[in-house]
């Protein structure tokens, strides 16, 4: 299946991708209270990458990622592990959730828990995995030895 991005696909992608990314970020943040969360958010962001890949190929995905996929994975794991041992550092249990209250004026009062940070780690790992898959398995012919 040779990917031949048409103009239509490209235009579609150009409008779709930002939307998908915003929705994915939204799902990540609201996950604690309504359907969503790190997995769903990460997978949706992965879906956005898929769209990018289909329209622009590997190069487009690479240019869109700020860092290599391996670093995203590492950062995700580190974030999650850091929140996990955060509890230990503060003399509590492993993975004990902490909380930070933010009063943001007319935006309302938000409480950012370590659970959200943890979910960000999850999000990053999922994104890292999907981008690895796309970069490695997508369009394999390009890399014939």
């Amino acid at each position: 299946m040779k990917v031949r991005p048409s103009l239509l696909v490209e235009t579609g992608a150009r409008t779709m991708v930002p939307t998908l990314l915003v929705v994915s970020a939204f799902l990540l943040v609201v996950g604690h209270d309504s359907p969503g969360g790190g997995f769903v958010g990460g997978l949706l962001a992965g879906g956005a990458l898929l769209v990018v890949f289909l329209s622009g190929g590997r190069a487009a995905v690479t240019s869109m990622l700020p860092v290599p996929a391996g670093a995203i994975l590492g950062a995700g794991i580190m974030t999650a592990v850091a929140t996990a041992i955060g509890g230990l550092v503060f003399g509590r249990a492993l993975l004990d959730a902490g909380k930070l209250e933010i009063d943001a004026g007319w935006f309302g009062s938000w409480s950012v828990g370590s659970a959200l940070l943890f979910d960000v780690g999850v999000f990053l790992v999922v994104v890292g995995l999907v981008s690895t898959v796309l970069l490695q398995l997508g369009d394999p012919e390009e890399r014939e030895e």
Partner: peptide
């Protein structure tokens, strides 16, 4: 999600 990861590996 675990199945997803492992399936991707198997495909590789």
């Amino acid at each position: 999600v675990i199945t997803f990861g492992v399936t991707a590996f198997l495909l590789a």
